[in-house]
Design a protein around this nucleic acid. Structure first.
Length: 419
DNA sequence: GATACGTGGCA
DNA sequence: TTGCCAAGTAT
């Protein structure tokens, strides 16, 4: 069991006089970040933008969110426009950002809000909407409606665990960290306080090498006082899961150069997203028997290499099979053909873009085919030069690392006789 | 409380 | 290369 804090936390568990909040807000007024979804001083926050950004930012970095936020505002300028859009359009716009239940819930939430006419303006009201949990409800209530609410995310948990030297590991410490945060939220400027706390965690009280000398809370910080700031928050290490294997089947139809795709089940892993047909993904999957899982009778060719991908809870290796079908071939029940230049309209998750990039790289002896239209640059690039095909079970894995993928898809090493 | 659920960046 | 992490939610 965790050791008790170095000294009694009770004496410091509240913020008498609000000096913590005041010091943080003063710091925020000087150092606040400018972000696309954030109102400038004096501006009125737009609940739609606040909500959209908060959902996108769940477990996702600011840098990753920025282009998606801009795209969504362009495609869906209002919550009514988002509510009126087909779900497949929303999923396609979200493709690549991950955690696709967020997109499904976003759409459902937009419909509920459009039906009601406005966003709820209380934490409790917001909490009832799909995709809005404790953190997001507090963040929207505080930021968009200036309600006195705490927005406790990973940044805030880190800041508060250091400030109070909380020895209990996360996630068990979450209720206590929320209570510690709520005790510091000021009566006025709760929205700025929420954003200030997140800015502090993102820019000063960082996971590694925090810039304590610049921190407005350096003096009251218990972890800093003991030089242990980098050791908080305490955490239990989590398991990474057992490797699963499977096969993916990329069929291209002659004539229109269309790719055979299907939509995954509405719930669960990659729910409602598109994919080329795949086998089940199992720890003991045998690629040698993969043709039994092929979606259609064709001359399937096993491609050299593997597509590797890391999910949150398990790593995956897919063996890719490719085939060319006759012009005019019909799609099997529940599947469809999508021309290569319209793949950007499909909600393809990252792992499936890797599979297509792997398979659609120019096969030896075949004419180059039309590039995929943006925004699927990883599919739009020229094929890699042919590599010597390997025989036998040992195949060189194609890493799922972006740099490696880029090398495979984007930067063929030394095209023979060119440049 | 534990588990499922993506992706890209970085040391 | 591998592991860890980043503005969590739903079941």
């Amino acid at each position: 069991m965790p050791a008790p804090a170095a000294s009694s936390p009770q004496a410091e568990a509240t913020d008498p006089g609000g000096s913590l909040a005041t010091d943080l807000l003063d710091w925020y007024d000087r150092h606040r970040r400018v972000l696309p979804w954030r109102a400038l001083p004096g501006e009125t926050p737009d609940p739609y933008r606040v909500w959209l950004s908060e959902v996108m930012l769940q477990q996702t970095t600011v840098a990753a969110v920025k282009p998606y936020f801009a795209k969504f505002l362009a495609l869906f300028p209002t919550v009514e426009a988002l509510a009126a859009a087909p779900e497949s359009s929303v999923m396609a716009a979200w493709a690549g950002l991950g955690y696709y239940s967020r997109a499904r819930n976003l759409h459902a939430c937009a419909k509920a809000v459009a039906e009601a006419g406005t966003f709820p303006d209380t934490e409790a009201g917001l909490r009832k909407l799909p995709g809005i949990g404790a953190y997001t409800a507090g963040a929207i209530a505080a930021i968009a409606f200036d309600r006195k609410a705490a927005a406790v995310d990973g940044n805030v948990e880190r800041v508060m665990s250091r400030l109070r030297a909380v020895e209990t590991p996360i996630p068990a410490a979450r209720p206590a960290l929320r209570a510690l945060t709520e005790a510091v939220v000021p009566e006025r400027r709760a929205g700025d306080f929420a954003q200030a706390l997140m800015d502090l965690g993102a820019t000063i009280c960082t996971p590694k090498r925090p810039a304590c000398a610049l921190c407005p809370w350096m003096r009251p910080c218990r972890a800093r006082a003991e030089g242990l700031q980098e050791t908080f928050p305490r955490k239990l290490k989590k398991e990474k899961g057992v490797l699963r294997r499977g096969a993916a089947f990329v069929a291209v139809r002659a004539g229109d150069e269309a790719v055979l795709l299907r939509t995954r089940p509405a719930e669960g892993l990659l729910g409602a997203m598109a994919e080329p047909p795949t086998s089940a993904w199992l720890p003991d999957y045998d690629p040698a028997k993969a043709l039994l899982d092929a979606p259609i009778d064709a001359r399937w060719k096993r491609l050299p290499g593997l597509v590797k991908h890391g999910f949150t809870h398990f790593p995956l290796e897919l063996t890719v099979f490719a085939a060319r079908l006759a012009a005019g071939a019909p799609a099997p029940e529940g599947m469809r053909f999508t021309p290569r230049d319209r793949l950007d309209e499909e909600p393809l998750p990252g792992v499936m873009k890797k599979v297509l990039a792997h398979a659609l790289a120019k096969p030896a002896g075949e004419a180059p085919s039309a590039p995929v239209a943006a925004p699927a640059p990883d599919l739009a690039t020229p094929a890699e030069p042919e590599r010597p095909a390997r025989r036998g079970p040992l195949q060189k894995p194609v890493s799922n690392r972006p740099s490696q993928l880029a090398r495979v898809v984007k930067k063929p090493p030394k095209p023979a006789g060119s440049r």
